[in-house]
């Protein structure tokens, strides 16, 4: 674990989390959530949890984003908050 690297990625993760729940458009919120998942994957690879990073990159960021995009495209993109 490199201290500065870790801290910078944690700050990016926080920014992505706040942006994902404040953006009004649901599709861009989902894409920001995918970026959040990949930043977490980078953080776990830095902590030494390689298998968890692989699983998050394939399952959490891949399949989860696809499921959310399918749900948004079958419903609506607009959100009031």
């Amino acid at each position: 674990m490199i201290l500065l690297f870790d801290f910078a990625i944690l700050i990016f993760v926080l920014i992505c989390a706040v942006a994902a729940i404040t953006v009004k458009d649901l599709l861009s919120s989902v894409i920001i959530l995918a970026a959040y998942s990949f930043l977490l994957c980078l953080l776990w690879a830095g902590m030494g949890a390689v298998d968890v990073a692989f699983t998050e990159a394939s399952v959490g960021a891949g399949i989860g984003t696809i499921l959310l995009i399918v749900a948004v495209s079958k419903t609506t993109r607009r959100s009031k908050d």
């Binding site: 989390a17 994902a20 649901l26 989902v30 989860g64 959310l68 749900a71 948004v72 959100s79 908050d81």
Partner: peptide, 13 residues
């Protein structure tokens, strides 16, 4: 949050 997909994103976080 009042939107259902926003709630699900919150659960994921």
């Amino acid at each position: 949050k009042r939107n259902l997909i926003k709630k699900i994103i919150g659960m994921n976080i």
